[in-house]
Simulated scan of single mutants.
Amino acid sequence: MDRAPGLSVRLKLTLSYAGFVMLAGALLLAAVWVFLNRVPHPGLIIEPDYRLAVVRTFAPTAVAVMGFLLVFGLAGGWILAGRMLDPLTRITDAARMATHGSLAHRIRLPGRMDEFRELADTFDAMLARLEAHVDEQRRFAANASHELRTPLAISKTLLDVARTDPNHDTGEIIDRLHVVNTRAIDLTEALLLLSRADRRSFTREHVDLSLMAEEATETLLPLAEKHGVTIETSGDFTPTSGSPALLLQLTTNLVHNAIVHNLPEQGTVWVSTGVRPGAVVLTVENTGEILTPQLASTLTEPFQRGTERIRTDHAGVGLGLAIVKTITHAHDGTLTLTPRAVGGIRITLELPATSPHTAG
């Protein structure tokens, strides 16, 4: 927005300080003048031209005093305003650098806590979050580009084979193209779901998280049987609010992840829901490989699959837990990943509880 140039804040404060000093001086001189003219003094002989003599004696002194106060107020006000506004100048410089793309700079204002230091610390925290978000988005864009490029490259290779080798089995090529195309569609839909959840562009409704867990478990039961995994469920009525579609997707992703990243055989998945003060809890726990806390903390990053970036028939597109994390944040919840000492992982989701009679 274009604005007309105006006086700087430092100059305004300087004039304010000088004006206050001048006003205080004028009031003091006025009080002295009244005192000299109105208050009787013992032994003082009042002559007819006394007032004129007082004016002639008092006026030059008053003018000199007011001149001194003006200079002192301007000089002192300029110095004091500069010292007071120095933190604001540093904050402005940091904001200007941030607008030009430099998010690594921090103000780190020294001294004890006051309004300016609180503002500087808040601004530093905002810059840190913004820098982390931008870095995350850059990594996500790079990974998404790589993931989308792979099925396209495979499709191009298969089509080149079909064109250059007419004797090649056409049915096999079509089947492989179908698999690759399905993967590309799944990845695109996952990216769209991430974007939708991140924008919070959904209507909140009344949701029972235990029903979401039950539906997700029933849907994925055939997959669990295929992989030799047993699912055990338990829980209570867990009322919350949010998007039923997104929360069902979240629960499905958690159970799906627990099934496919499990023991080669005789694995187990535990799905439970419960209520804590002010919150509802969904816990999904599974057997599997032993994980370190460092590895567990990275599993919600996009395109992270288990202990490494793997590609199997059940690995998905690498956005399962990333979608869970995004949906959780969009519903003002918390997500905790804790490795189990005997192998596998425990994922705990907490969402704000609502009254079952409250409208969403």
Results as ranks from 00 to 15, higher is better:
residue 281 V to H: 10
residue 322 A to T: 04
residue 293 P to F: 08
residue 22 M to E: 09
residue 191 L to Y: 01
residue 144 A to L: 10
residue 303 F to P: 01
residue 339 P to Y: 13
residue 30 A to D: 02
residue 337 L to A: 10
residue 355 S to T: 12
residue 209 L to V: 11
residue 207 V to D: 02
residue 218 E to G: 05
residue 211 L to V: 09
residue 278 G to C: 04
residue 177 L to E: 05
residue 338 T to F: 05
residue 276 R to K: 15
residue 247 L to S: 06
residue 131 E to H: 10
residue 63 V to M: 08
residue 198 D to Y: 02
residue 229 V to T: 05
residue 286 N to Y: 04
residue 85 L to W: 07
residue 170 T to Q: 12
residue 81 A to E: 05
residue 114 D to H: 10
residue 115 E to K: 11
residue 31 A to F: 14
residue 222 P to G: 07
residue 247 L to V: 06
residue 84 M to T: 15
residue 1 M to I: 11
residue 137 Q to L: 15
residue 260 V to D: 04
residue 54 V to S: 10
residue 257 N to P: 06
residue 9 V to W: 11
residue 227 H to M: 13
residue 106 R to H: 04
residue 236 D to L: 15
residue 233 T to R: 15
residue 66 M to F: 04
residue 206 H to V: 13
residue 33 W to Q: 01
residue 271 V to I: 11
residue 338 T to H: 05
residue 296 A to Y: 08
residue 210 S to P: 03
residue 68 F to G: 15
residue 360 G to M: 11
residue 342 V to M: 12
residue 32 V to H: 05
residue 48 P to L: 09
residue 284 V to H: 02
residue 286 N to E: 03
residue 16 S to Q: 08
residue 183 R to L: 12
residue 352 P to H: 13
residue 322 A to W: 03
residue 351 L to V: 04
residue 177 L to P: 00
residue 45 I to A: 12
residue 152 L to N: 11
residue 32 V to G: 06
residue 343 G to M: 08
residue 127 L to I: 01
residue 52 L to W: 12
residue 34 V to G: 14
residue 126 M to E: 09
residue 270 W to K: 14
residue 142 A to F: 06
residue 207 V to Q: 02
residue 120 A to T: 02
residue 197 A to G: 07
residue 359 A to D: 07
residue 31 A to D: 03
residue 159 L to G: 05
residue 263 L to T: 14
residue 334 T to I: 14
residue 56 R to N: 07
residue 22 M to A: 06
residue 358 T to H: 13
residue 251 T to G: 03
residue 90 R to I: 01
residue 265 E to I: 15
residue 354 T to Q: 09
residue 27 L to W: 00
residue 38 R to Y: 07
residue 285 E to I: 12
residue 326 T to Q: 08
residue 315 A to G: 08
residue 257 N to V: 01
residue 284 V to E: 03
residue 299 L to H: 06
residue 315 A to S: 14
residue 2 D to P: 01
residue 128 A to Y: 05
residue 219 T to G: 10
residue 324 V to K: 09
residue 94 A to T: 02
residue 54 V to F: 09
residue 162 A to N: 00
residue 121 D to S: 04
residue 208 D to V: 08
residue 38 R to S: 09
residue 172 E to S: 14
residue 19 G to H: 03
residue 56 R to T: 02
residue 242 G to L: 14
residue 99 T to L: 09
residue 153 A to E: 12
residue 320 G to K: 07
residue 145 S to Q: 15
residue 253 N to R: 13
residue 298 T to F: 02
residue 274 G to W: 11
residue 284 V to W: 00
residue 57 T to F: 15
residue 71 V to N: 07
residue 323 I to F: 00
residue 107 I to C: 06
residue 101 G to S: 03
residue 215 E to T: 15
residue 21 V to I: 15
residue 257 N to Q: 11
residue 244 P to I: 06
residue 74 L to T: 07
residue 358 T to F: 05
residue 236 D to H: 13
residue 174 I to S: 07
residue 129 R to D: 13
residue 142 A to N: 10
residue 66 M to C: 01
residue 136 E to L: 04
residue 308 E to K: 09
residue 143 N to W: 02
residue 286 N to G: 02
residue 351 L to I: 02
residue 331 H to M: 10
residue 239 P to K: 08
residue 21 V to A: 09
residue 278 G to W: 02
residue 217 T to A: 15
residue 159 L to T: 14
